[in-house]
Amino acid sequence: MSMRSIPGIHSHGKTDLPVLKPFNARAAGEADDLLFSRWLVSIPGYVWFMAIIGLVVGPQFAWAATSYTYSDALEALVKWMPFIVKSGFLFNVLISFFAMLIGTFLGVILGLMQISPNRFIKVPAQIITQTFRNSPWLVLLFIVLLALPFEMTIAGVTIRIPDWMKAVFGLCLPIMANIAEIVRGAVQSVPSGQWEASESLAFTRQQTLWQIILPQCFRRMIPPWMNWYAILTMATPLCSLLGVEEIITLSRQAIEAENNRPELLVPFYGFALLIFFAYCYPIARATLALERRFAVKL
């Protein structure tokens, strides 16, 4: 039997000191469920500082030759800003709240269905989860937009379904599927000994799940849940394609009202970018801080 050659023992090592490589807790190929928050937080501060300097100072020279200067464009932005924020961005936040609320509610149900011992509950739940998790969000939005009528009559009462409600419904579908995965993953991460101990204490499966397993995974679910909220908020401008009057739709209307000058594009959309960043960055920071805190104590 041939022995494997171990550097430092059977042959010369590259160093004569023992080297312990850093331990990577994440197995290769395993998805990082907080990837978005990590990326957002990892953006160094100077990038944003330079971007703002670039936005304010740079184009002063570029457009200095034309009569409509860059500072005119910034002035227009300042004029429109309250309207864009109050009627636009707050509406994005509203959409994200509702989509998250409904998505979380449905996702928890779907996630619990996935861990059911009953195959007729489990398999459909898995199929639904994987379908919505892996579909492009925009496609889902369009399907919902076209599939839902603009008004519904239930028991003689006609309810109008505004476009933003359809957008909420369209966005909550992928959120639902991803929350379902978070719930499933968290429940399955609880050691099987907890199930066995509960079983031998005569707890039923339902009692074990609700009184012993779920209270333990609740904290583990919060960071990935917040991560998905930030992703969802970033995705709300997709609704502008459905004609929902959110920040991007209103920015476009404002630009049109200012005679569609190309000088307006960078400040207006740059402002939208900044405001999303300003909203999501603290969430990402908090997500990672919570994750670190929960990682220490079970």
Binding site: P191, G193, Q194, E196, A197, S200, I212, P215, Q216, L298
Partner: peptide
């Protein structure tokens, strides 16, 4: 029947 396990399996919360 009561049972005690190698890994204690107490409820950590």
């Amino acid at each position: 029947v009561g049972m005690v396990f190698q890994q204690y399996n107490l409820f950590p919360h």
